[in-house]
Amino acid sequence: MAHKTLVIDLDRCLGCFSCEVACKMENGVALGVYFNKVLTIGPTGTFPDVEMYFLPTVCQECADAPCVKVCPTGASYKTEDGIVLINKDICIGCRYCMMACPYGARSFNNDAKVVEKCTLCVHLQAIGEQPACVKNCCGKARLFGDIDDPASDVSKALKAAGSDAVHSLPDVGNHPSVRYILHRKTATWQQSQPENTGRESQNG
């Protein structure tokens, strides 16, 4: 079964926020709301041995998505490609999916009174294009494809990186599918949420 997702090479990410801007432009994401957000992890360590990396965050397209399980109307669902989507026409805006997401990757649209999230730009996929964040990544750090297909670009990139350099966000039974590539030469992967990600002032 296919599972389309993102693989993000943090060795290549330069923290330019192009993915963030492209996502907001492509999907008309409201001011103060994000489907895709780049966090700054670090600096960690003690001077002069300090390190830092950028972590583009997005819906993790979980294999066992808790947001889909708790949805009372079936508005949150998984496509045959493994992508988690929201049918806004039947969403009742109860926000239980937002509570069920371990990463806070969903947001409430105060105008439409429904929950929203990254769609991996399914509308662009439908015309054979890549998601906006992937297309506009100037560092070529983002890859999109079927992680279950060994011949896909994402699978090849993961294989080339080596298992020690492949990371994912904390798994509480949801099995996130987005993978991050980060080699020790760049920085040490931080498994828990840092106190400061450089974006707190913008969160209000």
Partner: peptide
């Protein structure tokens, strides 16, 4: 009730 890792 904060999530495991809150992105946004």
């Amino acid at each position: 009730g904060t999530s495991v890792w809150h992105f946004f």
